[in-house]
C-alpha cells in the first residue's frame, strides 16, 4: 500500500504547472524591470507629520508649487482635507518634472492625477510622494479616490501644463 502513496501528478498537469510558473516569472520580470530599472515605482515612506498641526506648521501651512529649477524641476505641496485639495489649481510649464508631497489633516483621501501614474493613498500622519514629468501641454484633473465623507464626490483639482 505504501508504495502507492506517492503523489500522482498527471503529465499534462506537470506541463501546466511548468507553463504557469513560466508565465509568472515572465510577468514578474516585466514588473521588476519597469519598477527598478525604469522608475515605474510605488510610494515608499517619505516623512511623518502630526495631522493636528500640519495645516499650521511646516510646508503644508503654505501649500502650493515650489520652483526648484525654473522650467525644469518643481515640488508641489498639497494638503488634502474634507473636501478640497489645497491648492486646487496648479500650472506648470511643458517639460516640468514635478514631485508631489501630499498629506491629510483629517481623514484618509486619495490622490490620482489623471492620465499619469500618480495614484496615492493619502493617510493622516504620512507624506505620500511620487514624481511625474510633463512632456505635453494639457489639463490633468487630480481627483480624490478614497471615500472621505459627505462631499467626497466633488473633491478634485486641476493641473495645467502649458
Amino acid at each position: 500500500m505504501t508504495d502507492k502513496q506517492s503523489m500522482h501528478i498527471d503529465p499534462y498537469e506537470k506541463n501546466w504547472i511548468r507553463l504557469s510558473i513560466g508565465l509568472l516569472v515572465v510577468f514578474a520580470t516585466a514588473v521588476t524591470v519597469a519598477g527598478f530599472a525604469f522608475g515605474f515605482q510605488v510610494p515608499t515612506p517619505e516623512d511623518r507629520v502630526d495631522p493636528r498641526t500640519v495645516a499650521t506648521e511646516g510646508p503644508w501651512a503654505d501649500p502650493g508649487l515650489r520652483e526648484l529649477v525654473p522650467g525644469k524641476k518643481y515640488e508641489a505641496y498639497i494638503l488634502a482635507q474634507t473636501w478640497a485639495f489645497l491648492p486646487n489649481e496648479i500650472t506648470v510649464p511643458v517639460g516640468a518634472e514635478v514631485t508631489f508631497y501630499v498629506t491629510s489633516k483629517d481623514v484618509q483621501h486619495g490622490f490620482k492625477l489623471q492620465d499619469t501614474n500618480i495614484n496615492m493613498q493619502i493617510v493622516p500622519g504620512q507624506v505620500s510622494k511620487l514624481t511625474v514629468t510633463f512632456d505635453e501641454p494639457g489639463v490633468h484633473n487630480f481627483i480624490c479616490t478614497e471615500y472621505c465623507g459627505a462631499a467626497h464626490a466633488i473633491m478634485f483639482g486641476t493641473l495645467t501644463v502649458e
Partner: peptide
C-alpha cells in the same frame, strides 16, 4: 502593463 508604460515614470 502597456497602459502603465504609456503613462510615464514616477520617480
Amino acid at each position: 502593463y502597456l497602459i502603465l508604460l504609456s503613462r510615464g515614470v514616477t520617480v
